[in-house]
Design a protein around this nucleic acid. Structure first.
Lengths: 186, 186
DNA sequence: CTAGACATGTAACGCGTTACATGATTAT
DNA sequence: ATAATCATGTAACGCGTTACATGTCTAG
């Protein structure tokens, strides 16, 4: 299995929702909060080509009226497999420290492609790692605050708060899934 | 003035605190919450070489005992200028949406290199931009929540909460600077 | 005496950025 | 007519990742 970039996974996730063209993907990255990803053609089109070359998507040329070409991509079974494997792999402390953005991306498509049980597992793992990491940050802050300039200390404080908010989010999200289960919806 | 990468600015900021070697920088990135940056030699040493080539730092070979070489870098006047210019440039909505990590890095060295007045200006600007952006996120969430799968909605919720927490942080940091001014310390 | 920390580099590779290029269709 | 949107691409460039290479010094 070949390597897929973060942008590649973002695109692959969008293609799981419905078949889309490169331009469709660009519009989503340009106009929605998924806009943390680049909407430049120089990123999207090569990414789609790589995914196709590796057999994770296949494309069809759609000539709706006459000559307005539009290449529409959809995931292949192999593409669905690698996407699901990426989503459901275990969460390491490294992921939490260095790749929080990737974790959120993995989660954002979870229901549609891996199911609610996977979402719950993910949130449980994430909560566990965040519960481990946030005290370490606070401890570092407490140990070094006195000798740091105010701006440095506050920047650290911002990081600590971010992770603490993430932990609250993770817990509250988990309880939302639990309520749904109990309620019998979904 | 040549382009400096984010890693370049992070390194340059650390060199403002005290002269350091590439290995010193690596240790900081490896062992502190500044570890969002790469501590790999393949990133640090070329970055230092670029900074030197562009005249933003200069290095001296330190042969403490006899043959254990150690190349120590410090910023040049030109390096101090570009760093300060980068730190104090105005904050755009684009910065807040796509480059929050860069903004935090700019702020973290603010006291030492641009002064408290610059820190206050920065926080005021940031607060303004965050006050503008967070409602837009909430609005998008409210408009799309019903038709989204739970995981997608929650991922968005996480983003909204992050920015809201950042806004609270920005305000409370500002008031800390104000208190310090009034108290007459610093 | 040897494992681990100290210390600095290089080379291949992948991929995102920026800029350029081209052309069809729709709305003003 | 002509600006904006739809739509897809390519090429040069910069830089971070990964892996390799090399040698010193210190602690057990």
């Amino acid at each position: 299995m070949r390597h897929v970039s973060l942008l590649g996974y973002a695109v692959l996730g969008l293609l799981h929702q419905e078949p889309r063209s490169g331009y469709d993907v660009r519009r989503i990255f340009a106009n929605t909060p998924m806009g943390t990803f680049s909407d430049s053609p120089g990123a999207i089109y090569p990414a789609l080509q790589r995914l196709e070359k590796d057999g994770f998507v296949r494309s069809k040329l759609q000539s709706v009226s006459d000559l307005r070409r539009r290449r529409v991509y959809r995931p292949t079974p192999s593409g669905r497999r690698v996407f699901r494997a990426w989503q459901t792999k275990s969460i390491s402390s490294e992921d939490v420290i260095h790749r929080m953005d990737e974790l959120l991306l993995r989660f954002s498509f979870m229901d549609q492609t891996a199911g609610q049980a996977a979402a719950v597992r993910f949130l449980r793992d994430l909560t566990r790692e965040l519960r481990r990491y946030t005290p370490a940050l606070r401890k570092y802050l407490k140990a070094n605050a006195r000798q740091m300039p105010l701006s440095g200390m506050l920047a650290l404080e911002s990081g600590a708060r971010s992770y603490e908010e993430l932990l609250r989010w993770s817990k509250s999200s988990l309880s939302k899934y639990m309520r749904r289960k109990k309620g019998g919806r979904g």
